[in-house]
């Protein structure tokens, strides 16, 4: 089992012939991901990394029956690439690209909601189901198949936490890097619910950051709907308070709060919170 992604997921790499696309598509293929096609407009008909390249997503989907795509394309072209993937009928869209204008992301998000597409990112490391498949840039060698589900707003910090778990012999069911942008595809709550339903997952690790209110919403969900043990870490405990912004956000959603406040809210919801990433395996051990 695991969530979202498994060894049978057929994946298209958008931007496969670029520098980043090539590097990470190769690493995905080596990991075992079923990369069935690449798309680079103008390079259709070529073969790259042993995979056929198409000019458009529509052609690639038609020829390969892929259900997932991953975007390694510069920020200014990401909007168009994402809409192209959605229009081609992709069900799982992962956007690795950093620096996508927020308005573009909001538009992509509306379209994925209308079409019931699962979007991960943008500005994210992607997703890995250890031993089966990965989409994105999470280094496969630090992962190990197991029963800990990870959902994180961070990229590199997620690797840190995965590696600590693996070294301590705790494998992972699926690790999802949600991305660091204010508007993004799926969030903590979708993943928490999927992990709750997933028979392979026995422990859930939630990695948050300062800013936004996703952690608070996750705490509310954990209180009522999640029975599996959840462990939480929030980065930014030493970060200085942000500069004063407008008031509109605070009126609608309340204050987003410091790392300390978020930790307190997670604790109150019954989540085991830790002060450093390497404490997570220790807490899981205590819990077993």
């Amino acid at each position: 089992m695991a969530i979202i992604l498994d060894k049978n997921t057929r994946v298209i790499v958008q931007g496969i012939t670029g520098k980043q696309g090539t590097f990470h598509a190769r690493s995905m293929i080596e990991y075992g991901t079923k990369v069935v096609a690449g798309v680079t407009p103008g390079k259709g008909g070529q073969e790259h990394l042993g995979v056929p390249v198409y000019d458009s997503m529509k052609e690639a989907v038609k020829e390969t029956q892929a259900t997932a795509s991953v975007i390694f394309i510069p920020a200014r072209f990401t909007y168009s690439a994402a809409l192209e993937a959605i229009d081609a009928g992709i069900e799982l869209l992962t956007v690795i690209t950093e620096g996508v204008p927020i308005k573009d992301t909001a538009k992509i998000k509306q379209r994925v909601q209308e079409e019931n597409v699962i979007m991960i990112g943008p500005n994210c490391p992607g997703i890995i189901t250890p031993g089966e498949s990965k989409i994105g840039i999470i280094p496969g060698e630090i992962c190990k198949q197991g029963n800990v589900g990870i959902v994180s707003r961070s990229g590199t910090l997620t690797y840190e936490i995965i590696q600590n778990l693996t070294i301590n012999d705790f494998g992972q069911s699926t690790c999802v890097g949600l991305g660091g942008d204010p508007i993004k595809g799926i969030g903590f709550n979708e993943c928490l619910k999927w992990f709750e339903e997933d028979p392979q997952t026995e422990h859930i690790v939630l990695v948050g950051e300062i800013g936004g209110t996703g952690e608070q919403e996750a705490a509310d969900l954990v209180k009522t709907e999640i029975s599996k043990p959840v462990y939480g870490f929030i980065a930014g405990q030493t970060a200085p308070p942000g500069k004063q912004m407008g008031h509109a956000g605070a009126i609608v959603h309340g204050k987003s709060g410091t790392a300390q406040e978020k930790m307190r809210i997670l604790s109150e919801a019954g989540i085991t919170t830790v002060k450093t990433p390497n404490e997570i395996p220790l807490k899981i051990k205590e819990n077993i």
């Binding site: 994180s152 707003r153 961070s154 990229g155 590199t156 910090l157 997620t158 690797y159 840190e160 660091g180 990695v207 950051e209 300062i210 870490f233 980065a235 930014g236 405990q237 030493t238 970060a239 790392a259 002060k275 450093t276 990433p277």
Partner: peptide, 25 residues
């Protein structure tokens, strides 16, 4: 010096945890 906002923040946090302090993010 770090890569990724989350890890850079966690790096700052860790210095404080061990009794020192970061001069920058």
């Amino acid at each position: 010096i770090s890569g990724g906002a989350g890890l850079a923040m966690a790096t700052c946090d860790l210095l404080e945890f061990y009794g020192s302090s970061p001069s920058n993010f």
